[in-house]
Every structure is written in C-alpha cells, then in structure tokens.
Design a protein around this nucleic acid. Sequence first.
DNA 1: GTCAAATAGTTACATATGAAACTAATAGTT
DNA 2: AACTATTAGTTTCATATGTAACTATTTGAC
Lengths: 155, 155
Amino acid sequence: MPDIENVSLLRLREFLPYRLSVLSNTISTRIASLYDREFGLSIWQWRVMAVTGDRPGISATEIGQLTAMDKVAVSRAIAAMIQMGYLERKTSETDGRRSQLFLTPAGRDVYELIVPMALGAEQELASSLTEDEQKQLEHLMGKLADAASPDRPLW
Amino acid sequence: MPDIENVSLLRLREFLPYRLSVLSNTISTRIASLYDREFGLSIWQWRVMAVTGDRPGISATEIGQLTAMDKVAVSRAIAAMIQMGYLERKTSETDGRRSQLFLTPAGRDVYELIVPMALGAEQELASSLTEDEQKQLEHLMGKLADAASPDRPLW
DNA sequence: GTCAAATAGTTACATATGAAACTAATAGTT
DNA sequence: AACTATTAGTTTCATATGTAACTATTTGAC
C-alpha cells in the first residue's frame, strides 16, 4: 500500500512567520549598522539610550518593560554604556535596590544626534508606503500582536 | 544660555523597526516552542527540514539561499539533523564538493507531522485578519522588503 | 522587631551565533 | 598538464545571549 504522494503545501518563503522574521532582521541589521558605525552602539544599547533620554531617572526594570528586553540584557547594556561614559547611575534614595539612570552630557550629545538619525531611517522606510498604507500597517501589526500575544490560548 | 528643552520625538514603542522586531520575535518564539516541544527541532532545523522535504537532493548552499540562513548555520543544522537521524547526505557524483540532502524515513515522518502543524499555526495567526487585511499585509511586506533591501542606497 | 517572601539587579555558566580561517574539490587559464 | 582562482562546506575562535543561581534590599505577616 503506497503512501499518498505528498504534495507540499508549505512553501517556506510564503510562510508568514518566516517572511516577517526575514523582513524584521533585514531592517534591524540595516539600522543596527548605522548606530554601530556612527556611535559604536549595539541595538540594545541604543534602546536603552532611547528610553533613558526620554525618561531621565528611569530604572533598569522599567527600561526592560519599555524596550522588551530581559533584565540581563538591560543590565549588560547599562554596564557597557557606563563604561563608555554615556550613562550615569545613582541609587534611589527611597529604595536601595533601585537604580536611577541618566544620560551624561556626552550621552546626551549622542542622543541628540541619534534620534534624528533613527527618525530619518524610519521616515525613509515608512515613506515607501503611502499615508493610507502606513495606517493599514499600524492596524495590521496591532492585530497580529494581539493574536500572537503570549497570554492567549496555545496554538 | 540654556539648551533648548528636548521634547522627545522618538517614542521607542511607536518606532516601526522596533515594533516589527518585537512582533516578529514574539511570533518566532511562540512557533519555535512548538517545534522544539514536539520534535526537538530548533527554528533553523525546522527551516532545513521544510526545504529539504520540498526539494529532495537539495544542497547546503541552496538551502541557505532558500531560507535566508548563512552557510555556517546551515552546516550546523544539517549536522545536528543527521545526528538525530532525520537527514541523510550523499556526495554529488558530478561535483565532489556538493552534498545532496534527503530526509530519512524518520525525517519524512516528522515532516509530515510538522507541516500541518506549521500551517495550522500560520492559519491561526492569519485568521486574526480578514481576507482583505491578509492581502494588504502581503502587499505592505513586499514594499517594506524592497525599501529595506540591502542593495539600495544607504540611509 | 523578626523572619519569610518578594523585588532589583548582577554574576556564572552553558549554549548559540557570526566572522574568518581552513580543507577539499572544481573550473578556468595558459 | 600545471597553476591560480573559485566554490562548497567545515572548523575555530571570539562574542553574544539566555537560564539559573546569587546578593542586596525591601515588604509584609506575625
């Protein structure tokens, strides 16, 4: 009794999770090379800089929540950036476990340069889409994020 | 002369490359846990299986091209899957450098199980979108992929 | 106040990953 | 045929990353 001939219905290159992953990696890698080349920052360090510039005094845990990084990655990025002279850490007066993070003047300088650069890159990317398409994308990503959210029933 | 107050224009959480990355990672991690839990396959191994099942006799280099993996990752995934008894390698008769890869019967068995599972997961994901939205997504990803393609002028 | 449990963050260890060097085979040039 | 350049794939090494264990501090129950 021969097996039914397997006609593959799965073409990896059309597989949504795969395509999303390739797309996202392409974009991330491209942008990361900017930060790295110009300022020697990794993508994680850039994320830490982005939120710390926006919220001086933020704690490591909060950075993790805002950037979707785990606490080890946050801790390492912070350590490196203190080394580089871009970040400063104080211990919270009301809670000795908590650290409060601030950009140093040098860090602030980089921040002021990097933000327009990041926005420019995003612009460049987004401008390949029409206004309408940008709104669509917004909407679709929201729906997919919901559907994939970890607190939904298992697939 | 005080600095101009910096009103941050960058909200990381609204930053497109960041959002794409988080979304893609969420989905990948979720799916990877399926393959891993059920069959002990990593995401790379699953990709190798997907294309080898579809094109028996494929070479490592071709796998790399079809899966957007670099040759080291392909080599390692293949080695592991041969170990596991899922893959078989022959040396091409016409080119001694080239290997030809085939799923073993055991590998084929897993393939037959994993493909419907993968398609199911994608279904689940895609079904959070309407038909129309799915087409939009298709279209938007294509445009973004073009815009981010590495052989375009640097940002 | 004392002690167990929770929280913030770091360190240690084991594994994953990428770049570059390497091996083996083929192709192309003379 | 001999020699160089190219290609397929593997190995090595240095770095990145995640999990779990750990330290320090605070919170809450008693």
